[in-house]
Amino acid sequence: MENIINFTKRVFRGTQGTFLGLIVLTIFFSLASPYFFSARNFINILDQVTVLGIMALGMTAVIIIGGIDLSVGSILALSMMVTGWVWDAFGVPLHYACLIGIFIGSIAGLINGLLVSYLKLPAFIATLAMLSAARGLANIFTDGKQIYGFPEWLTNLSVVRHFGFIPVTMLVFIFLTILCWFLLKYRKEGRNLYAIGGNPEVARLSGINVKGTTVVVYTISGFLSGIAGILLTARLNTCVPQAGFTYELDVIAAVVIGGASLNGGVGGIAGTIVGVFIIGVLRNGLNLLGFSPFVQGVVIGAVIVFAVALDTFKKKER
């Protein structure tokens, strides 16, 4: 037991404030709604945050190096539509189609990275352009139409529960989370991201390949958005070019609530996951209490302000 506590402490080091916030929210909704506190609902929440969470992993790395990726939602849609399109129009077997979709997502991320590090475009501008272009492309392939009627195995990824409770989509999310956590915390490449975000010139003079690393980070963000696109396809059993619209906002919100700083150099996977769950719990809990999505938007806005203000306040105290 003690080991578990120590391990938990280590994983969530530096995220105590937000972690506490998550617990408070959980207690609040448990008291407010009889349906909230149940294993089934928690699985529900996990299911609902899978797509958001996977994109937030990549966004964490991007924000740590001092960048921003506004294009994740559009890249999600692009990967999704490419997958559906090559399957539907060319008869490519679906599992290959999925790989092609993820590949295209990675290419979009690669282009973001090249624009930022070699053309020296501000990340905001480069990914804003990609947000527009990828969304446009997503619509071009099928002229804005949906694709459906996929083989059953795709839907099963999100429906069939293994070990009695967990579908493949969630397993993918959990696996990627642990992988990213390890890479960021225990690989030298991960540590380098913090140096780049702290001060790119210091990092360069310390012998870090700043440009190369930047390209890789944006590519990973695109790659993860691609995977998120496939998982969303599995959940919806449909390819919709409007998918992932404004997801970038929730993703950035989750990462920022999780304690990352848009100035770079600060952040982590554990914090981000807490941020993702805060958003997930809020949406789920407010749903159960019968609040409309519009109200949810207002509440999430308030939570962002509250979390970041608290963080700034804590820093001043020191």
């Binding site: 380098n192 702290g198 310390s206 012998g207």
Partner: peptide, 14 residues
């Protein structure tokens, strides 16, 4: 220096 980061990060990074 990475001013906002720890001394150990500053030494180990290179």
């Amino acid at each position: 220096l990475l001013l906002e980061q720890s001394n150990s990060q500053n030494i180990s990074i290179a």
